[in-house]
Design a protein around this nucleic acid. Structure first.
Lengths: 341, 341
DNA sequence: TTGTATGCGTTATCAA
DNA sequence: TTGATAACGCATACAA
């Protein structure tokens, strides 16, 4: 057990070379002799030499690490986004530092500090539910580390962002509902501080307008994603004088809870209510009577795209002034049991 | 925009102190004057000073980072384990580096190198499906970094491991099946290179013995977790001359696929087959006709416990000789629709 | 109570 | 083609 790891120095000493020569040899620097390179590499392998990233980072004043801040890994959507981001990062020689806010502003602030402390070269972030004020994020950016928002962008910030084109998604959903003769369409939305909520809403509203359906404020309810909140929103809709015959939900998790609520509390009417959510949660395939449809998003691609944009900012800090807004399309995916109706 | 981050030197210079004094003041070292501390801390805040972990790691020859290697974050079980591990790590001042093997041995080897290169202070690992030979892991340990296996431990290695007590779990499952009059009980297992597969099997076999049910080799099938493989294993069981009336599955995902397969390909018999899986996947609550039961595991606690064990090894390298084996109990959770039968 | 000197592993610059 | 030197930011042993 060689408890002390081999360093460049060790190799240099053993081979009677200088550390700088060894360093260059290991990295195939052009002006090092072929034989020297061979000797160095051979010994390096024998000694199980592994370059010390810790030292390289320090020396280069660059962490080769990108950060990603998400609400929770228990949400399949964000896991997929992490996957895409990670793949992009690894392909470009970067590590990834993951942080979960668990929807807590306090935690988000702490994590931002951790990211700074670790000197991440850049960060992508989906803000927490509690994030109304964005001073802490602005300070982070001020300190020189570029960020890219993804999915959840503060509504009062103009900044780089990659997200789903939920506006068009909502338009499509409404059109599909209308084609199935629905005229009263409920909508369960999320935090009004996110552009992604606003865009969903605008699509919902404009979709109604396109089909000459009057907009009714009471048909729009807000939920915070907890099961209880999803249930309550559903109940509020169903207890209206003129309840909806169809519901568009902010995301599949909300839709599934709405479905549970309907079947439990409104059993007689449950089967006549049609539902569309966002996300295409893979578990839906296991339901015997799945909801009507889901707007399939592209979380993996969103993670990748956000990484691409971020790396560009990392390498060309001056491009930071013109905020980029990337929207990836959603696709309405109708579940099989409804297709042939 | 202060593009260059403040360092201890900057503070020292501005306050006409030495860097070492500032360093000590910031960390509340006892022999620094109160007024000095105040001056230092005040300026540090004004300059938005954030200690450079990159430098600290380098200086201390310690990364304050723990690694975790899992098959995939798309598996809810491992996400929960990461959560537990992460919480423990953060509470103890450590960062976490996550790697996903995606069941590839090649990727696992690469990730092990990345972990070494990042000088993680310790690592917990659930090996990939392809990991039969464990030379790469042993070399990793040889190089001086402690590891703890969790869930998936190579069958030919005696080493620290934290996992579910699946042996007792299988015993309980069989007992429950027997209480419901089943006599032919199928079993879909996973890689025979994992102790967790062997233990499940031993529990299955011993459970049968306890109830004087003859063991039948053909009732045990293996799957690799892909949907197709899960389907095939189910079909092999159902196509036996004397098919099972109940099936124990390696994990809930396998059980759900088995359920799909039964309902699709063996519709007439599907409802008479009872299923038990491992894991208590939260999505099961959304099924209208859920399977019989699931052995609820404790992935969060397993992650925490593995972290605890690992940190002990990190801090007391000499304790490494007596392999610790920790098993956390599983609890048979019967789904509601069956409870009153 | 504060300051000085040193070194962690690596690489870039410049000299030989 | 190779080598010497300095530097990155911080913590520590020791000196004042």
């Amino acid at each position: 057990m060689d408890h002390k790891r081999a360093t460049i120095k060790d190799i240099a000493l053993a081979l009677k070379l200088s550390p700088s020569t060894v360093s260059k040899a290991l990295r195939d620097h052009p002006n090092i002799g072929v034989t020297t390179k061979e000797r160095v590499k051979k010994l390096a392998e024998q000694l199980h030499f592994v370059p010390n990233q810790t030292a390289i980072r320090f020396k280069q004043q660059k962490s080769f690490t990108l950060g990603i801040l998400i609400p929770s890994m228990l949400d399949h959507f964000y896991v997929a986004a992490v996957e895409g981001f990670e793949k992009f990062a690894y392909d470009n020689g970067y590590n990834v530092l993951i942080g979960q806010s668990h929807e807590s502003l306090q935690r988000e602030k702490e994590l931002l500090l951790t990211m700074q402390s670790n000197r991440v070269d850049g960060l992508i972030i989906a803000i927490s539910r509690e994030t109304v004020d964005t001073t802490h994020i602005n300070e982070f950016v001020q300190s020189g580390t570029p960020i890219v928002y993804f999915m959840r962008k503060p509504i009062n910030e103009e900044y780089h962002c990659v997200c789903s084109d939920v506006y068009t998604g909502s338009i499509d959903a409404i059109a599909f509902f209308v084609s199935r003769m629905h005229k009263r369409i409920g909508f369960i939305n999320a935090s009004s501080y996110w552009t992604t909520s606003r865009d969903r809403f605008l699509g919902y509203r404009d979709g109604l307008i396109q089909h000459r359906i009057p907009f009714d404020k009471s048909l729009v309810q807000e939920s915070d994603f907890t099961q209880e909140s999803n249930f309550q929103a559903t109940r509020r809709l169903m207890q209206l004088d003129k309840p909806p015959t169809a519901i568009l939900a902010f995301k599949d998790q909300v839709m599934l809870d709405a479905l549970s609520c309907l079947r439990r509390d409104f059993a007689t009417r449950a089967d006549s209510i049609e539902l569309i959510g966002y996300g295409s949660n893979p578990m839906i395939q296991y339901l015997e009577r799945p909801p009507l449809a889901s707007l399939k998003e592209q979380p993996f691609e969103i993670g990748q795209k956000a990484g691409l944009l971020l790396l560009d900012l990392v390498n060309h800090p001056q491009t930071g002034y013109q905020p980029q807004l990337v929207k990836l399309p959603c696709e309405l995916q109708v579940f099989s049991s409804y297709k042939q109706r």
